[in-house]
């Protein structure tokens, strides 16, 4: 890999990292609005408010960057980066088409899991460093949530890795078969639910429950640092959607996949993102105790069952 190629790959991953979350965010604006009988943004950019998030970004840049006097200043400033950058790393290894990924590493499935796990730490650090009771309670809730939901995610991904006989995302997607849709269905559901919970998206947004905790761990943040947390959330949706598309929906498999494979991956990922948005609009927030019940009494057993089922399938040679 020459230096030029490295630069080119880095730039294209960064471009995808900056564009795709905005696309998801704009979709959320419009879809949520129409689900609630509204129009959503209509003015920014002229045509149906397509530039709303660009305008929001421009606004965030102009805001004053405030660090509370009592805050742990270095950690406070660092937290948005810790929340954001892991998703950039994760996005780099998600395969879009055969041989097309920002970076092809042998155990990319593990890399993605580790990266997203680190990303969640940004919330904890932000909550602790803010020196604010709402932020701290939000961070505590986030910590409880992350510990509970990390396990189902790992188990669900492990099941697919077992089925594909590899820890490399492109290899797993390459070996994907249509009957996986049924065979891996419980794991897919577990992953989707747990990943949404890990992103602290509604209906699992108790850490930032605005009726109780103002804005949870992000309460004290302003300007660009606050925007980074929002960007991290939407980048997280992109990573989760593309990962789901690659592992459970067969990524680039589809008609004309030799030429249009990347379109299939993006389309499937977009469909998952829409589902994530839909869940946010349609469902109420779960309580913190319901959250734990769901994780430990439903998702973990279901994921273990899926793992056993996959084991049986692999041994039987399905």
């Amino acid at each position: 890999m020459t230096l030029v190629e490295v630069a080119l790959r880095a730039v294209s991953v960064l471009a995808a990292f900056l564009v795709l979350p905005l696309l998801v965010g704009q979709t959320e604006h419009k879809l949520m609005a129409h689900m609630q009988g509204r129009l959503g943004p209509m003015y920014a950019g002229g045509f149906h408010g397509w530039a709303q998030l660009v305008a929001d970004g421009a606004k965030f840049v102009q805001k004053e960057d405030i660090v509370p006097a009592a805050a742990d200043k270095r950690l406070f400033r660092l937290a948005p980066a810790i929340a954001l950058i892991p998703y950039l790393v994760a996005l780099a290894v998600v395969p879009i088409a055969p041989g097309v990924a920002g970076l092809d590493v042998p155990a990319s499935a593990i890399l993605v899991l580790v990266a997203t796990g680190v990303g969640a730490l940004g919330t904890l650090i932000a909550g602790w460093a803010s020196a604010n009771k709402y932020a701290l309670i939000g961070a505590l809730r986030a910590a409880a949530q992350l510990i509970s939901y990390e396990l189902p995610i790992v188990l669900a991904v492990a099941s697919v890795c077992l089925a594909g006989g590899s820890l490399s995302l492109p290899t797993i997607t390459e070996r994907w078969q249509p009957h996986w849709l049924l065979w891996q269905l419980p794991g897919a559901i577990v992953f989707l639910v747990a990943a949404v919970a890990e992103l602290q998206r509604p209906p699992f947004d108790t850490p930032v429950a605005d009726a109780e905790l103002v804005m949870g761990p992000w309460t004290e943040y302003t300007g660009l640092r606050f925007a980074f947390f929002l960007l991290a959330e939407y980048a997280g949706i992109v990573v989760l959607s593309l990962l789901f598309a690659a592992l459970w929906l067969g990524g680039w498999h589809g008609p004309f996949s030799e030429h249009l494979g990347w379109v299939w991956t993006l389309l499937k990922g977009f469909a998952v993102a829409i589902l994530v948005i839909w869940m946010r609009v349609a469902w109420p927030r779960v309580r913190a105790d319901q959250l734990q019940r769901l994780a430990w009494l439903w998702l973990v057993p279901l994921a273990l069952l899926q793992l056993a089922l996959t084991g049986v399938g692999v041994v039987m040679g399905w």
Binding site: Q36, G37, W278
Partner: peptide, 21 residues
């Protein structure tokens, strides 16, 4: 309950909005 929520939101996506600009 969850399915009903999704059905309701899906239905109102299909309806034209009642926003007067």
């Amino acid at each position: 309950g969850l399915l009903k929520g999704m059905a309701t939101t899906a239905k109102s996506v299909m309806r034209p909005t009642h926003t007067a600009e």
